[in-house]
Write a protein that binds this DNA or RNA. Structure first.
Lengths: 139, 139
DNA sequence: TCCTTAATAATATATATTACTATTAAGAAC
DNA sequence: GTTCTTAATAGTAATATATATTATTAAGGA
């Protein structure tokens, strides 16, 4: 039977407290700060089980670590191509986008991942700063 | 200046011959079969440079290796959650989806990754087979 | 043919994640 | 509360994917 361990509770609590789409590593760091003996593998396993149970959401980001989120409305994300951080996107969710597929060729569809790409304000500002000060002229 | 090495030509040729969205590893295997001394790092570097130049396309798939594609029309992909293979999707491309974002909050957007998820016919057929023969009843 | 240096091969390292295994502890049975 | 079963854990190793490092090679201009 499924057991209710403190490690699982701490993992769930951490995801709910860390509002900003934490990665497994960030969740681990947070949990480890109050329960230093927890192991990374336990956090990974619990995150995946919680996501499978629908208690949290797992967001799979191309070219980067998975991010986790407390449950909330469906929404999209944008990742910064420089700093790899992930942010919410202010856009209506497209329900049943997979219904637009003309011919599934026997595929059983079960959803999709959509992630926008770009440069975040912080990174584009620091580019600007470097350009203005000429600091980017170094080899 | 940019140099035209055989390794780069072989890498480009391989992507154009391997029609089915090869991963870097698959490209490496293909190239290595005719040029066994090529190194993995060289294939990775050339694939990324060719993609940066727009000579091939790099597809970043959540939770899996990047795939590469010879240039063709914009289209979406679906990955099988069991065997991780990637297939083309028969659906109209949505141009400028990022224009639907209401407020970019200063983000400089430059595109998006959209990948559908599901179970491919091969994998769902083998499930079916196991179910019919009762082979899935083992613990 | 020579020369400069971009590109390479080989190896090491980084990152993200899962697998393995002896030990611990959750919760059912008593 | 005590015992018992075994799910879950801690710690470690292993895996997958990809980039970094460095001495050596070779592309292509002079």
């Amino acid at each position: 039977m499924k057991r209710n361990t403190i490690q699982r509770s701490l993992t769930l609590d951490a995801v709910q407290k860390l509002k900003c789409h934490p990665t497994a590593e960030e969740v681990y760091d947070f949990v480890a700060s109050e329960h230093p003996t927890i192991s990374r593998g336990t956090v990974y396993r619990n995150l995946n089980q919680l996501a499978a149970n629908g208690e949290i959401r797992k967001m799979e980001i191309p070219s980067g670590a998975d991010h986790f989120d407390h449950l909330c409305h469906d929404h999209y994300h944008v990742r910064c191509l420089k700093c790899s951080r992930v942010f919410d996107v202010d856009m209506d969710y497209i329900p049943d986008l997979e219904k637009s597929i003309k011919n599934t060729h026997g595929f059983e569809l079960s959803g999709y991942d959509l992630t926008f790409k770009g440069i975040c304000p912080d990174c584009s500002m620091s580019d600007q700063t470097r350009a203005n000060t000429g600091a980017n002229s170094r080899k």
